[in-house]
C-alpha cells in the first residue's frame, strides 16, 4: 500500500503545488537578489554577508527562511489531508472495505507523508543549489568561527541541513495527521498544524516556555545550523533528533489509536 499512497500523493495538485512552491522559493530569492543587489541583514540568516558573492549561500539562506513558516505550511496541508481528504471523498470507506488492515493503511500514509517531508526539503535544497550556482557560482564559505568551509563540504552542509530539517517537519506532519484523523477536516488540520507552529514560535520568542524552550518543536528546525560550526556541535543536533522523534511518536501513537478504532461514518 505504501507504493499506492506515494502514487496518490504524487497525483494530487496539493502535493505538486507544495513542491512547486518549494522550488519557487530559491528562484524568487535569487531573482530578488539580482534585482535589488541586497541580501538579508547580518545575523538573520547564515552566511548572509557572503550572499551576493557566493551562490552556495543561497540554499542555506532559503532553507533557514523556509523553515520558519513555508516548509511547515506546505507539509501541514498535505499531512492534514492524509486521512480527512479520504473521508470527505468517501474513499476511506472504499479502501477499508477491502482486506487491508487499518494499521497497515495508516502507516502507509505515514510513510508517504514522511517521504513528502523529505522531498519538500530536498526540492528546496536542490533548486536552491542550482539557482545559487547559476546566479553566482560556488566558492568556499567563511564559517562562523572563521574557518573555511570548502565547496564540497558546503554542498554536503546544504543536503545535511535539508535532511535534519525534515525530522521536525515529520513531527509536525504527525501532529497534522493526528488532527486529520480526529477532526476529519482537511483544511482545519492543516491550519491547526500551522497555528501550532506559530504559537510555539510566539511562546519561544516571548520567553514563555521557560526551561521547556529547548524542547519546543519549532526550535528543532534551527538545529541544522550546528552543522556549520567547526567542529560540528553534535549535542544540539542529537537533541533535536530525539525531541522531534518524541513529538512525532506521541502524535502518531495517538493518531494510530484513533484511526484503528474510530467508526468510519462517511
Amino acid at each position: 500500500m505504501i507504493r499506492w499512497e506515494i502514487y496518490k500523493l504524487l497525483r494530487q495538485r496539493r502535493t505538486l503545488f507544495g513542491l512547486g512552491a518549494m522550488a519557487l522559493v530559491p528562484v524568487l530569492f535569487v531573482a530578488a537578489l539580482e534585482i535589488t543587489r541586497q541580501g538579508p541583514p547580518e545575523g538573520e540568516a547564515p552566511f548572509a554577508t557572503q550572499l551576493l558573492e557566493n551562490g552556495l549561500v543561497v540554499p542555506l539562506v532559503t532553507l533557514a527562511f523556509a523553515t520558519f513558516v513555508l516548509l511547515p505550511l506546505v507539509v501541514a496541508f498535505v499531512a492534514g489531508d492524509a486521512v480527512a481528504g479520504e473521508v470527505s471523498a468517501g474513499t476511506l470507506k472504499t479502501v477499508l472495505s477491502r482486506s487491508v488492515g487499518r494499521t497497515e493503511l495508516f502507516f502507509s500514509k505515514v510513510v508517504a507523508v514522511g517521504i513528502y517531508c523529505l522531498a519538500a526539503s530536498a526540492v528546496l535544497a536542490g533548486v536552491g543549489l542550482a539557482a545559487g550556482y547559476l546566479a553566482g557560482g560556488f566558492a568556499p564559505l567563511a564559517g562562523p568561527g572563521g574557518a573555511t568551509i570548502g565547496v564540497g563540504r558546503g554542498i554536503g552542509l546544504v543536503w545535511g541541513g535539508a535532511g535534519l530539517v525534515s525530522v521536525p517537519l515529520m513531527a509536525l506532519a504527525a501532529f497534522a495527521i493526528f488532527l486529520s484523523v480526529t477532526t476529519h477536516n482537511s483544511v482545519g488540520s492543516g491550519v491547526g498544524a500551522v497555528v501550532l507552529v506559530l504559537l510555539l514560535r510566539l511562546a519561544s520568542g516571548l520567553g514563555l516556555a521557560g526551561p521547556l524552550d529547548p524542547y519546543l518543536l519549532t526550535n528543532q528546525f534551527e538545529a541544522w545550523l550546528n552543522l556549520t560550526r567547526d567542529p560540528i556541535a553534535w549535542e544540539p543536533i542529537a537533541r533535536s533528533l530525539w525531541v522531534s522523534v518524541l513529538w512525532g511518536a506521541v502524535f502518531l501513537t495517538a493518531a494510530w489509536a484513533v484511526f484503528t478504532r474510530r467508526d468510519v461514518l462517511s
Binding site: 494530487q12 471523498a89 470507506k93 472504499t94 472495505s97 477491502r98 487499518r102 494499521t103 468510519v264
Partner: peptide, 28 residues
C-alpha cells in the same frame, strides 16, 4: 471488527455513494 483485516474473503460491495479517487483513472 474495526482495527484490522478481518478476513473479508468472500464478501465485497459498497456502502453509500461509492467513493473513488477522481484524479486517478478507473484502471488505477
Amino acid at each position: 471488527v474495526p482495527g484490522g483485516a478481518w478476513g473479508r474473503e468472500g464478501v465485497a460491495g459498497f456502502v453509500d455513494a461509492p467513493g473513488f479517487y477522481g484524479y486517478l483513472s478507473a484502471l488505477d
